[in-house]
Each structure stands twice: as structure tokens, then as C-alpha cells.
């Protein structure tokens, strides 16, 4: 019988700890497929964040470094500068990248570090139990915005791709979503390109992936995917912001 689908080599053959309906697993698989397709597992170093995916060093088969909250782009800078032949990716959530690590991501982009950042935006803090994130939508209820996010108190959601688009060193910026098959295919295309941008030394590349958190959103997995489509994409438009036509 012909094999039509198999686990990517770069993905470890162990059960993941994510909640039912969480899309981290999909994003992991996409990254692993890309690593396989580009045949770079042996020289890739992944950087795990603080957040639900803190231990994704267990899930990838390449060398992995776990970073302090928000510091992955700085850690990645150190690794990449030490061994430029490595392919280095950071995997960061919205609290990690867009709150505590704002300085690190902006300046890694500013320096045009040859890094690939996968930014998983699910509009909430998952691991610490559903607190408000910088990307939490207006009126969204979280454990620290129990009456909904209101501008007077919490300010407005942060659009990371749009923000980074003003930075010269950030050469590839795209927002994708894994809420449906088409979205998953586009996400993979974007992530693959983001790796290739790094491998051709063009500069900093980031793919924001709109992702679900059924547990902390208080929704069923199916409803959560609908919520991405209806609410998140409405505020965070999908598409390429920079580098769409870049030759890599």
C-alpha cells in the first residue's frame, strides 16, 4: 500500500500535551514539514518560548533552546551570530512576543537578524489561564478583563505585522491563519518562504499565525475556529505585508 501521509521526520513521535482543538499542533506540524522539505533538520535550531508551547523542544527533532519569556529573538540573535550556517527559528505566542518581548522582537527586526519567527496569535494567555493579551480583541472577555476589553482601561489590540512593516530590516512579513484547510495551506507557504528568506540571508522574517484557544475562550473547538474566521480575521486581516515577490 502506498504511503500518502506520514509524520514529518523533524517532528518527534510523542503525544503532545495541547488541549483538544488547540492549533499549536497544526503549526508544529507545518514547521516540521517545512524543515523536512528544505532538508535542514541537521542545521536547524529552534527556540521555545514561555507559554503553552514552552516545551515544544520535546516535539521537534532538531536542536532546541528554551528561552526566557519574550527573549527568544535575543537568544536567536546570539545563536545565529555564533553559527551563521545554522537556520534559527523562534516560536512565540502573543504574550511572549507582543507584550514582554516587544523590545526584543522590534530590535531583532531592526537589525535585520537572519531569523525566522513564527508568531502564534490566539488573543489570550493560555498557559497562565486565560488572561488578557496585547492582541485580545475589543470587548473580549478574559480572566483579567472579566467585563470585556475596553479602551479606557485596557487600550487597543496590537497589530504586530502592521507595526513591524515599518521596519526596514524586517523583509518578509505575512499573517496567516490555521482555522481551515485553505488557511493551513497558506500558512505553510508563508512559513516555508520565511525559512527560505533566512537561508538566502535576506533579513528578518516573521509569519503571524492566527490560532485558537478553545479552553480559555470557553468555546468548543469547532466554535473556536469559527470565531477566528468571524472575529479575528476581521480585525487582523490575512495576507502578505512585505516580501511577497521576493526571490529566494
Amino acid at each position: 500500500m502506498a504511503t500518502v501521509v506520514k509524520k514529518p521526520h523533524a517532528l518527534a513521535d510523542i503525544p503532545m500535551h495541547y488541549c483538544p482543538g488547540c492549533t499549536h499542533g497544526i503549526v508544529h506540524r507545518i514547521i516540521a514539514e517545512v524543515i523536512d522539505e528544505l532538508d535542514i533538520e541537521g542545521k536547524t535550531i529552534g527556540i521555545s518560548p514561555v507559554g503553552c508551547s514552552y516545551n515544544n523542544y520535546d516535539y521537534f527533532n532538531c536542536d532546541m533552546v528554551q528561552a526566557a519569556h519574550g527573549r527568544a529573538p535575543a537568544v536567536g540573535t546570539g545563536i545565529k551570530r555564533a553559527n551563521p550556517e545554522n537556520v534559527v527559528f523562534t516560536y512565540q505566542g502573543d504574550g511572549d512576543l507582543a507584550a514582554i518581548g516587544t523590545g526584543e522582537i522590534i530590535h531583532a527586526a531592526t537589525r535585520g537578524e537572519k531569523l525566522t519567527t513564527i508568531f502564534v496569535n490566539n488573543a489570550i494567555y493560555g498557559m497562565t489561564a486565560g488572561q488578557m493579551a496585547p492582541t485580545t480583541l475589543m470587548n473580549q472577555v478574559t480572566s483579567t478583563s472579566p467585563y470585556g476589553r475596553v479602551a479606557e482601561n485596557h487600550g487597543f489590540p496590537l497589530k504586530v505585522c502592521e507595526l513591524l512593516s515599518t521596519i526596514e530590516g524586517a523583509v518578509f512579513i505575512e499573517r496567516a491563519s490555521v482555522h481551515d484547510i485553505k488557511g493551513i495551506i497558506n500558512t505553510k507557504k508563508a512559513i516555508k518562504k520565511a525559512f527560505k528568506v533566512q537561508m538566502s540571508n535576506k533579513g528578518f522574517a516573521i509569519v503571524e499565525v492566527l490560532s485558537s484557544c478553545p479552553t480559555n475562550w470557553g468555546m468548543s473547538p469547532a466554535k473556536a475556529l469559527e470565531w477566528i474566521r468571524e472575529k479575528m480575521i476581521d480585525f487582523y486581516p490575512l495576507g502578505n505585508f512585505k516580501g511577497e515577490n521576493m526571490e529566494v
Binding site: I45, A67, A74, G103
Partner: peptide
């Protein structure tokens, strides 16, 4: 903060 984390990265390498 960034500098010490770059040290962390380079030392990892």
C-alpha cells in the same frame, strides 16, 4: 535584558 539573552544564545551555540 536583550544583551544577556544574546549571551545565553551564543553560549548555547
Amino acid at each position: 535584558t536583550a544583551a544577556i539573552n544574546m549571551v545565553y544564545g551564543a553560549a548555547s551555540a
